[in-house]
Amino acid sequence: MEQLGIIERLQSAFGETLGVWHASNSESAYARRMGSFFQVSDPARLLELAFFLRDEPALAFDSLLLLSSVDHGDGSLSVVYHLESTVYRHQIVLKITRPMAQARVPSVTSVWSHANWQEREAWDMMGIRFEGHPDHRRILLEEDYPGHPLRKYFKEPDFYHGMKVPN
């Protein structure tokens, strides 16, 4: 299914208020295909949307390729979901943008188990909370590491467990 077809399908099921489609105006066909994204406006409906995307037979997004987090540098954070259907070979990108103070989105681990570690990583690196995650711990850094290092204004600690960190 073409990406616009997917969006129409979504909007007919959820109504127009679900989000906005951003089409890429890039020259390369590949960047057009992957650079376009759907901005979900209401995080509360994300889980519902995710279940719909996976279970609707015409969409069948059975694979979450990647869950990434982006710090936009203006006090807002985004979570980006790259989805793919191994049945129909179509892809879609979902985005949720939240202000840093309310960086909380529902966890999609119950929909795609691949999201389990990916969400833990996003929490570890970017400090985004995933509500309803079964194992909400840091994954790469130690639990007592100060801060979330991939935020743009992160400053590394001078000492960690008595070891000098910077040069």
Binding site: S24, Y30, A31, M34, F37, L65, H82
Partner: peptide, 21 residues
């Protein structure tokens, strides 16, 4: 140019994807 891309290749271990903004 301004934009983003998710590009993937097959490495010996599987699908290696880069999401570049």
């Amino acid at each position: 140019p301004e934009g983003e891309i998710y590009s993937r290749t097959e490495t010996p271990r599987g699908e290696l994807g880069y999401y570049i903004v």
